[in-house]
Design a binder for these strands. Sequence first.
DNA 1: AAAAATGGTTCAATTGGTTAACCATTAGCG
DNA 2: CGCTAATGGTTAACCAATTGAACCATTTTT
Lengths: 153, 153
Amino acid sequence: MEDTSIKELVDSYINLTFSIEKNSVQLIKGQIRNDLTNDQHYILRYINQKEECTSSELAEVFHVKKSAITAIIERLWKKGFIQRTRDEQDRRVVYLTLTDDGKDLFQETELRIYQLVGSLINQFDQDEIEVFMKTYEKLNRIILATKEEMLGE
Amino acid sequence: MEDTSIKELVDSYINLTFSIEKNSVQLIKGQIRNDLTNDQHYILRYINQKEECTSSELAEVFHVKKSAITAIIERLWKKGFIQRTRDEQDRRVVYLTLTDDGKDLFQETELRIYQLVGSLINQFDQDEIEVFMKTYEKLNRIILATKEEMLGE
DNA sequence: AAAAATGGTTCAATTGGTTAACCATTAGCG
DNA sequence: CGCTAATGGTTAACCAATTGAACCATTTTT
């Protein structure tokens, strides 16, 4: 492949990614209760699907420092969506879980997000979806590999 | 398609998107000078490729309020990357352009981002890329249409 | 000429992020 | 055993990004 077409390809990819990302964020925000941000919902999701979830784990998955997680958890805790329980075996550890309120809010919001994303996906046909997801997964693997390579494992 | 497989599909899509997005942001951040954020670079890019760029336009494209743009532009202006010139025809309007420093910084950073994205894309073969980009474009169109539909055109 | 709309800015408040210092607790090792 | 790492989490100072509301200056509309 010559340089010009690679250049154009990268160009399209960057522009498409930008557009899809910005507009998706907006669409998702439309499904989330007004006093919660998208990332706050994603954090509820992560805690919900984890058996035992800690701040350190969240910091790693969300690619931010632990102190940032502390602040976010504090806000969600103040709103009554999250519980903190100390591990009695290792008293440094604090486990995060959703309260009943937190679970209710999460389920309700998640349903709406699933309906939204489902309605987007439904506009593609089976073949398209399969091929796309396969490449999308490969892209994910390549990005992860590149990241580990660049940031030193 | 039955509900369970749609549910799984939406699940994979959401998780993949999350992972790709978070990790891409990190990779891109690695290509950008330390005193600039990713979005600041994207704003330099947008201004660079536009003939005449205004705050209102940026606010629309980046899906934030004009006051947020004012703040970002102010920071970029303080660093000497951006110029503001009043339109003498319509004295309400302020045109944004890159200074020479801004252009230099932008070109240099953009080159590194293109190399990064190019190296990712190069790990796919021609067919994969073509099919993926086609579906990716369709996804973009569908998201835009859905957005207009939901937010009332 | 008066009223409405437009393009930008300012300001207070909230959220999210970093760095650095710190506390409590546990793990490792001579 | 006891001192030193290391670990998990919090706190505080600081900055960037964002919103909403009020506002200024300048067109546009009526």
